[in-house]
Design a protein around this nucleic acid. Structure first.
Lengths: 181, 181
DNA sequence: GTCTATACATCGATAGAC
DNA sequence: GTCTATCGATGTATAGAC
């Protein structure tokens, strides 16, 4: 079961998440295609397992990060870890954060770790002074924009993501500037 | 030819760009599926025509915008127009700006209007004081982040894109603040 | 659990007649 | 140009032997 999901990740590295065929997956695992139905009721069920697995990987990664005391530094560390996780495995990022598989919606269970992750991010942003929904939305959209641009235009590089710390400071300072007026 | 591309756009509105099948497209046009190969050598050639067509639409839209004299206001108008164009037709945005069709790479010809658009954006940002590659990269990634979040999480709404003007000011002010130190 | 075998629908694509 | 017919691949699914 876990080894099938691992094999699916391997295959997705070659032809993308959408390019994983059940026949190829069975071949990779060393069984026949119908036997996969012993483990997954459908291809979407496979994607759901991969989605859950990817989110567990993300949570494990972020929990391993030692967050600095300073709230602002904590936000940066957290986001840097997220960015590193995202760019190191593009198909995984695509499955977890882009709506790309036609018709695939993660189940509520599989989606839960994603919620935990998001709540943790919001919590850290609050602690660093971003209180309003609007400010949090903008910050998260900014990070996603950096990751997307990086993956799309310069995979393996750092042309966009290297600006995270500077932009984070800018976003975190902005509420203060707004108040001063 | 043009009417086939138009029909393809219509179909993409129902099941997404990736969901356009040649059989459904032929049905929509009133011919049989193999007859489409008289007009397009492959499905990717169809996507290439759609890509070129979408970029022509974008250029036409942006050329129709009356840009204010003030460089900063001009940037905002330009980006607002781009955002409006993006959110009003999601499949078109997906084809033009997301790498979502597996294996599809626009031809150099079709890509040319996209270059024109990008150069125009860079030009306006320069005029508004964003000179470095880094600053331009960040600004454009920010706009893309807003559009992506909007389309993914709140299609038809304005929860993210409404922050464009405020964020634009923030990005355009930042080089000055950096110099003051 | 895993297999063989088979089925059905869909897809992009091609051959060849008209 | 348009057609019919067909190909090989896909995802999905089932029946039934071992």
């Amino acid at each position: 079961m876990a080894s099938i999901v691992a094999a699916a990740w391997r295959l997705s590295g070659e032809h993308g998440v959408g390019g994983v065929s059940l026949r190829a997956l069975a071949r990779e695992v060393g069984i026949r295609q119908p036997s996969l139905y012993e483990y997954f009721d459908s291809k979407h069920a496979l994607y759901d397992s991969m989605f859950a697995d990817g989110n567990r990987q993300l949570l494990a990664r972020l929990e391993a990060v030692k967050l600095p005391r300073d709230p602002r530094a904590a936000v940066k560390s957290f986001m840097q870890a997220f960015i590193g996780f995202s760019v190191e495995d593009v198909p995984r990022y695509v499955l977890l954060f882009q709506r790309q598989i036609p018709g695939f919606e993660p189940s509520a269970e599989s989606y839960q770790p994603a919620q935990v992750f998001l709540n943790r991010a919001i919590e850290l942003l609050h602690a660093a002074g971003l209180e309003s929904q609007a400010d949090v939305d903008c910050f998260i959209a900014m990070v996603a924009g950096l990751v997307d641009a990086q993956i799309s235009n310069d995979p393996g590089g750092h042309r966009w993501i290297r600006h995270l710390n500077r932009l984070a400071d800018m976003y975190l300072d902005e509420p203060k500037r707004r108040k001063r007026r």
